[in-house]
Design a protein around this nucleic acid. Sequence first.
DNA 1: TTTTATACTGAACGTTCGGTCAATATCTTA
DNA 2: TAAGATATTGACCGAACGTTCAGTATAAAA
Lengths: 198, 198
Amino acid sequence: MNKKQIQSEQTRKKIADAARHLFVQKGYKATSIEEITAATGSSKGNLYYHFKSKEGLFLYLLDEWDRDWIAKWREKEHLHTTATEKMYGFAEQMVREDLNHPLTKAADEFFIGDDKTCEVEDRLAEMVAEHLSFNRMLIQQGIDSGEFRENDVQGLALVLEALVIGLSQVSRRANLTQALETYRLAIQVFLHGIVQNK
Amino acid sequence: MNKKQIQSEQTRKKIADAARHLFVQKGYKATSIEEITAATGSSKGNLYYHFKSKEGLFLYLLDEWDRDWIAKWREKEHLHTTATEKMYGFAEQMVREDLNHPLTKAADEFFIGDDKTCEVEDRLAEMVAEHLSFNRMLIQQGIDSGEFRENDVQGLALVLEALVIGLSQVSRRANLTQALETYRLAIQVFLHGIVQNK
DNA sequence: TTTTATACTGAACGTTCGGTCAATATCTTA
DNA sequence: TAAGATATTGACCGAACGTTCAGTATAAAA
């Protein structure tokens, strides 16, 4: 790799990092390109050299996050044996990785906003579907192992998704300890409606 | 009341209605003053004659909604005897009255946005506190009556709030029947982690 | 009828924002 | 070193937005 290519990559990363930080902190619309460039030290035109548009930049961040999340989950999944443990592990990773994540905040802006591109809309729908699929899998595992009651898996996946989205919003201003506590309590509540025998 | 005063009141109401509808549909930022006035048929200046600002208009809608919600709840509260029934009633009113409500959508924009006035910030904090207080009361009633387990009431109120917020977002595109179903399932899940004996 | 307070109009303003582009700097390659 | 590719700059553009204001219409008061 060239010295130039390396530096270019670094610039790209620096922009992405600053953008992620600002999107997380202020939301999508409230973060301006100028603010991002001010945070990186590089120029506006340079941002548009590396990324097609503001939406493109955001999309890139979503993809990046998606990959990281799955990778981190695969890393730790084997540590949990029961489905119950997995649920708590799931919640913990949510707090540690996703608390104040662009997706939950800015996705909402996109869903409502009328200026979204088809590409973005599709990508977001895809991500929601992936989330639900993940939740379904998690719950189904518990049912298969006999830990959870037989139930409307799709419905429960949706409820779990709702819980997670809501928790993220409610915990936005909380510190890590508080958030962890709230998440654990939420999962506990969620589980004791699922677990077979109490 | 004067003929003029009556018409003025009607105009004010027409603007508020149009604004509410648009805020609900598109969110706060995405709804422009021009769109609101276009929907009412009256002029931009007229809107600013009746309302201090865009924020002021939104604040007015929040207050209005708050009053309506409480009034509706008080109306129906006596229909439910047990705390469990109240929880389901609570969920149902949430769906029927609050699904796609400005608060849950646009409050997020306000919380994140940096252009919010102190007045708005205070008012929103107040509303959240009221919500939590309401939830706490609901849960405490169940505990007092022996229906729910003794538990961290404040924590559970927060979890319930998270659930409700998340449900509202998840159900945004669903029709009423689907939403009701999801909400009922969610409450069922929430309850069976609370109810004493199963 | 005349005066006055209220309700309403819409052009204009200042600002912000995403995006563009011609010019320039920097590094690679021949 | 010269030529070419790549990376970076920042002034600039047009559109959109919330807000204002001088002026007009209308109903109430005198």
